[in-house]
């Protein structure tokens, strides 16, 4: 089945098995392996991308359902060779260890803060319920996201 979408600003076209999950399409067909798979029940959030600017777990959608959409993955988050502020904040605040949940965490957090500048710590913790990390105990992830949220609010 023919599918076309714009991924990280590049038009992509492919013939896919209709049952192909978007995450497998990104990883296998486009070799965008930054998007990870950590579960098979849409709990962990490692596969989080942006679809038409909205946060989406790419294991919950078939590739064909994304036909005509704009997709941004972790590989497309940086602009002009500069890290996105959320990437910088994760690095500065030690918001990652093994790094496997990190692309999904950053994608989810970047969109959350864009939509909720000035979010409180409690709001951040509540929002991150959909992204699971086994290494950090969330402490430094929350710190990183809060730093960007404060900065986005002009604090």
């Amino acid at each position: 089945m023919q599918v076309s979408m714009t991924v990280n600003g590049v038009a992509q076209e492919a013939d896919v098995d209709p049952r192909t999950l978007l995450v497998h399409f990104l990883r296998e067909a486009l070799d965008l392996t930054g998007t990870k798979i950590g579960c098979d029940t849409s709990q962990c959030g490692a596969c989080t991308v942006h679809l038409n600017g909205k946060v989406l777990k790419s294991c919950t959608l078939l590739a064909v359902q994304a036909d005509g959409c704009e997709v941004t993955t972790i590989e497309g988050l940086a602009e002009g060779g500069e890290h996105h502020p959320m990437q910088t904040a994760f690095w500065e605040n030690h918001g990652l260890q093994c790094g496997y949940c990190t692309p999904g965490m950053i994608m989810a957090s970047a969109a959350f803060v864009r939509d909720n500048p000035g979010a409180s710590e409690a709001e951040i913790r509540h929002y991150l319920e959909g992204n699971i990390c086994r290494c950090t105990g969330y402490h430094n992830i929350v710190k990183a996201v809060k730093q960007v949220a404060d900065s986005a609010a002009g604090a």
Binding site: I74, E75, E92, H94, L96, G99
Partner: peptide
Amino acid sequence: SGIKRREDPRLITGEARYTDDIK
């Protein structure tokens, strides 16, 4: 000194290659 980790640039950009990422 609590310096930033040397591992992180490849991890925060999705460039790191885990086993399943290798083709």
